[in-house]
Amino acid sequence: MSETLTLVSADGKTLTAPKDAIMRSAMLKNLLEVAANSDEQIPLDFVHSEDLENIIEYCKYHVEAEGKASEGDISKWDGEFINRVTQDDQKHLRLIQTTDQLQIEGLFKLLVQGIVRKLHNKTPEQIREKWNIPDDLPKEKKDEIFNTTNWLYKKSQ
């Protein structure tokens, strides 16, 4: 049985995960190589426990599936996983932030693609409304964009 490590989330929840899975995070890998002992708890003060659970689930699956499952099976699982964890926009954004900090490339890419899908086919107003973004683009800047490339914005104007 592979070695396990204990991770502590920002909300104080303790979670154990196989070391192989944790090593999927480039940031934790570097940390473990330099400083950590496997018998100590690793505090992850920037990670919500809910996100940590999802990240561990992702990493565990990929460690286990590597070399065993087909590419099709893995991408199918990835699709289902991303659909599940990104249903809530706030959770989705938090996961992006966390995976960026933990440097888990594969998961980060999938989450980014999820955001891209959510932004697709939306007007600026819809994007602002959905993601709670202020309309702070100065009028002069907007005019400049519309005046110089009015043909680009023909449909949306």
Binding site: V116, L119, N121, R128, I133, L137, S156
Partner: peptide
């Protein structure tokens, strides 16, 4: 760098809309 990563995956139409969404995106 995260926003850049997201935008680099967007298609042209989405970029056009994002360009006029807010100052930061622009």
């Amino acid at each position: 760098h995260v926003l850049s990563k997201i935008f680099s995956n967007c298609d042209y139409e989405t970029l056009k809309e994002l360009n006029v969404t807010c100052l930061r995106f622009s």
